[in-house]
Design a protein around this nucleic acid. Structure first.
Lengths: 188, 188, 188, 188
DNA sequence: AATGAATGAGAATTCATTCAT
DNA sequence: TATGAATGAATTCTCATTCAT
């Protein structure tokens, strides 16, 4: 009996790169099937619809990253260590699978609503961490949402610069600079 | 008596908010016409196509902002003043018309072709300014693309936090904090 | 401005005859559009889907007939007169638009569930009438559902015999014979 | 160890109830396979196609019933006895396997081609019997098609009332009432 | 300018059937 | 015999655009 795992993986990778290159709406089932070298109908054996595929790609990656971020935050005692570890983790992950990460970055503006409902956004984690830091007097009290925006903004824009080819280094090569910038912005 | 200018304006505002909420591809002519309270065909009295409308909305706003940004950069002598003025301008513009600005922000992920063709993204302005600052020793030499990413990241994420309702203040209320954070990140 | 009423009517008549001839499932949008001489997309300007069209054809006709039957039952005092008038009405209606009626007959096995929910089936009317007749001692007490089945069975099968070409007369030509048969069956 | 006969029987029963519930066209191979707890492909070990299965279910039951009906008609001398025996047989058969019988009843509206090809519908039997009765002066001369419609209508509607749960008794419990009604209708 | 019915190309989806295991 | 992944033709449906009014 044929094993569909391979086809499924191929479909996901092909869809991913097309979604990143052209956007979900502009990518057709035909595009994906052609690229994956299967018939159009095959996609529907694995996913109920194009949207479900787009969703699945987003959610599964997003949830995994979110969970790991949470873990990392918990295993580090001080605020500064938490931030360092999280940025480090993010850079590592990005370099590991830039296409998947690019999808995560670009898709967030369309699919984040769903994630919002699940209340597991990275943004919210950061808010929790900031509130804890304020309580422990590790950082001068400010709007945690504002602080979270700074951290997210710096890291995400660094990644987006890679999407558009403005920076070609790996994220890990900039990890220290990123951490320094973030802490500089927060402690300024 | 119907006034064509009014219809046009209404179509643009309705299109804009729908484009921001659902994305250009997912917004149909019918959506726009319904929201504007006109017939579907009416849109074609004002624009050749949906794409032309999307383009027009982007370009007209973008051009104005670009021009003003360039102006600001030229009228301020030092690097720090330039940055301050630009962030100030950005916040002001955002508060003036958040929906239009959100469209400008989010469109970068959908209509990149346009921006690239014009080769005049805000990012590129920043790179020029950074290179000048390095030349003038106003700032320790670094990768200007990296620096630009930091500035853009902080400002854009602050705006995006407003899109998602995480921050409800005006941008101008945060303008000083934003400038402080940016300079803190750059000089760290 | 073009008036869609004509197109709509034509679509309904064409759909109706195709549904009767081949069944709803076996009739394609293309079939209907071709027969009506319009583009396939046109159907969707008038109905959300093929199913909605099938449903609409059924419901609107069924509801009208049910309502009229109810009226007739109320305007006749005795049980026998009620039955006579209802059978008369049914025969008249059938002859007026046999295709629509055939659709009603054949579709009932697929769509009657929906009607059931509305509690307006002809069967239920009959039950009410029989209960009243039992109360008034116009008829020996029996299971009203059983009696209703007899009335419905005789009338509907006479109509179905026309669908399949076994009988070619109009229903009105058999109206007296039908009434006689029904009363004979009930009073036996 | 799997027994092929069992699988086949299960497939048939599952298909049957689905065909009755949703109609042949609306029932998918997947539906049947899922309900039977086998893979989709398995069905094709037993039947060439979905249509062959639908056909087979119909034909095998139909043939048996037809043959027995013919037999009954021949072994009873008088018209009244023939009718009584046939109704009796019909009720017995229905109670024996209501689902199969419902399929037989409802299939006439979907698979008429088959019946017509065989030209041996119950309706035609009745016509022959009626013509004989007219010849023997057992019944006043009328349109045999009309008479057949009365008999079929009463019996089928009684069965259909069971499909829709309006009557919950077995058919055999109503057999005498049915015969009385039929004769009442015919001799009226 | 405005309308909204009609178009038709193209996209998404369904599903009976085949086939490698 | 059994499996279920894969196929692909057929079908449904969408929607930007055109056009008669």
């Amino acid at each position: 009996m044929r094993d569909g795992t391979n086809t499924r993986k191929r479909l996901e990778r092909c869809a991913l790169s097309l979604f990143v290159k052209k956007g979900v709406a502009a990518t057709t089932i035909k595009d994906i099937a052609n690229k994956a070298g299967v018939a159009e109908g095959t996609l529907y054996r694995h996913y109920e619809s194009k949207d479900e595929l787009a969703q699945h790609l987003f959610s599964s990656a997003y949830e995994e990253v979110s969970l790991q971020l949470k873990n990392i935050a918990q295993t580090h005692p001080t605020f500064e260590e938490k931030i360092k570890a999280m940025v480090h983790f993010f850079c590592e992950k990005y370099d590991e699978d830039p296409i998947l990460f690019n999808y995560l970055l670009l898709a967030q503006h369309n699919q984040l609503k769903i994630i919002h409902e699940k209340e597991v956004s990275a943004h919210e984690f950061l808010v929790v961490i900031f509130n804890e830091a304020f309580r422990k007097k590790e950082l001068a009290k400010q709007d945690p949402q504002f602080c979270a925006a700074i951290v997210m903004g710096i890291v995400l824009q660094a990644a987006i610069s890679r999407v558009y080819g403005r920076i070609n280094r790996s994220m890990m090569e900039d990890v220290d600079a990123l951490i320094k910038a973030i802490l500089g912005a927060l402690y300024s």
